[in-house]
Simulated assay, not measured.
Amino acid sequence: MPLVPNISFHMPSAFLLIGIPGLQEGSVWTSIFFCSLYVLAILGNGTILYIIKTEESLHTPMFFFLSMLALNDLAFSSSTVPKTLAIFWLDDGLIDATSCLTQMFFVHCLSVIESGTLASMAYDRFMAICSPLRYNSVLTYSLLEKIAFVILARAVVVIFPIPVLVGRLQYCGGNVVLHSYCDHMAVVNVACGDTQINSVYGLALSLFITGFDLLFIGLSYAMILRTIFKMPSREARHKAVGTCGSHICVIISAYLPGIFSFVTYRFGKKTVPHNVHIFLANIYIVFPAFMNPFIYGVRTKQIRRRVLHILTINPKAFHSFR
């Protein structure tokens, strides 16, 4: 009778994250690049939160959603970048299974929260431009709390099954994850059993969440543009477009890298090198967190003036930015 190999099908006690494969030679410059973006993201979003909290004139629905976005960006980038830098600088890619599943949950949960926050900001701009007289009466503090709760609850409910499904997969002794953090499909690829449920659920979730939120944002801006075109004066139209400019830039910086990363991972494995995909996956997390404070800092007069005041710079010197 042949001997049966002693193979454990349980999840390994730890995984080994290899970082960004193929970039070992330029790891110093890559790590400096991500570290710089991360530090600037912390400083920028921290400044935005401080200004919104201390400036009473900014206690409005628009800045409520902006503070949600800043908090989420801080948590989102902090969920992956420190471990990525540890891989680059300390060659410490080992992560225990519980920490890996926890990181997986927070990475994908915060991604869904970011998408929901951007959709809520589109609704805020819709109310401000299409129904300005009802803006304050509709977007009350009570409604804002309910919207924030729904965004958080939706993310937790749809993402919670992911680490549960990953934990139930069969593993044949492999523990090397070809990624810089515990991405869902990167860990699933380590498993040796049937992973179809994980793949289908991950694909359906990405299409549903991103598709729904982008559709909502698209419909909101379609109605916003219709209202803008009906405005009698050119100055009013220009002002209305200006109030949406920051949000549109944030949407582009958030969704474009994410969609490109998703498409290349699902459909471009043969044409896009794996290291490019991993690099883009990291950019998708840290780049919006870095860009958003600069976008709102430059385009929002109240924040720009407050920053100049904090830096004790004479605002008159920056008259050209107004």
Rank of each mutant, 00 (worst) to 15 (best):
N6C: 05
I7G: 12
L17A: 04
G19N: 01
P21H: 00
G26K: 01
G26A: 07
S27Y: 01
V28S: 05
F34T: 03
F34L: 14
C35N: 14
C35V: 05
L37T: 05
Y50W: 15
I51P: 05
I51T: 05
I52E: 08
I52H: 01
T54V: 09
F63N: 11
F65S: 06
S67A: 13
L69W: 10
L71W: 11
F76C: 06
S78P: 15
S79C: 14
T80E: 00
P82N: 11
K83W: 00
L85M: 11
D91T: 13
L94A: 11
A97I: 07
C100M: 03
L101T: 02
M104Q: 01
F106H: 00
C109M: 09
V112D: 03
E114T: 10
S115M: 13
T117R: 02
T117E: 13
T117D: 14
T117L: 14
T117W: 01
S120P: 02
Y123N: 08
Y123L: 12
D124C: 07
I129P: 05
Y135V: 10
V138A: 10
L143I: 11
K146F: 05
A148C: 12
L152A: 06
A153I: 03
V156I: 12
I159D: 02
P161L: 05
V164S: 04
L165Q: 05
G167H: 06
L169C: 07
Q170D: 08
C172T: 04
C172I: 04
G173W: 06
H179Y: 03
Y181L: 04
C182Q: 07
H184S: 03
H184Y: 15
V188Y: 00
C192N: 08
Q196R: 08
S199G: 13
A204T: 09
L205I: 09
S206N: 10
T210N: 12
F212D: 02
S220I: 12
Y221D: 12
L225F: 13
L225P: 00
F229H: 15
R237T: 03
R237Q: 05
A240R: 11
S246P: 04
S253F: 14
L256Y: 02
P257T: 09
Y265Q: 08
R266Y: 13
R266V: 13
K270S: 14
K270Q: 08
T271I: 09
H274C: 02
H274R: 07
N275S: 10
N275A: 06
I278P: 01
A281I: 09
I285Q: 10
F290V: 06
M291G: 03
F294K: 02
Y296W: 05
T300N: 11
Q302M: 13
I303P: 11
R305Y: 07
I310Q: 06
P315N: 02
P315I: 01
A317W: 08
A317R: 03
F318A: 12
